[in-house]
């Protein structure tokens, strides 16, 4: 029996991951690492939030940090769902909260984990 709504369940899940220290802002991820977006919130700034959403940074999308710039790891290039690469700056990247790739069969995940260091 499911007592939670879908949204509540998701919020709980995110909460657990945060507690367990498994989440980090997109801009802090090590280069080459992958993860799944847990939350995108502009903290009241709807324009930034919508901008990110429109470029594919949406909850559930799989992201991979490909490159960092030389100074201050800024900007960074991120591959979204294995199909589109987007460049963005740290300020915006840190609005995106990323957790582990829990469900490897979820949408847009790496079918063959072709990863390296």
């Amino acid at each position: 029996m499911n007592v939670y709504t879908e949204q509540e369940r998701q919020a709980l899940e995110v909460g657990c991951l945060v507690k367990a220290g498994l989440t980090q802002p997109l801009g802090q991820m090590p280069q080459g690492s992958v993860g799944r977006i847990l939350a995108v919130s502009g903290m009241g700034d709807h324009d930034v939030e919508r901008g990110l959403l429109e470029m594919g940074f949406v909850e559930g999308a799989c992201v991979e940090v490909l490159h960092y710039g030389l100074l201050g790891r800024d900007p960074l290039a991120v591959r979204i769902n294995q199909s589109m690469t987007v460049a963005l700056r740290q300020v915006e990247a840190n609005i995106v909260l990323v957790g582990p790739l829990l469900d490897p069969t979820g949408p847009g995940t790496l079918s063959s984990q072709e990863q390296n260091g």
Binding site: G51, L52, A77, M84, T85, V86, A87, L88, V91, E92
Partner: peptide, 14 residues
């Protein structure tokens, strides 16, 4: 000087 103001996000598809 003349064009003070806050900055805009960079969101650019490669």
């Amino acid at each position: 000087t003349v064009l003070r103001g806050n900055r805009q996000a960079l969101l650019m598809e490669l």
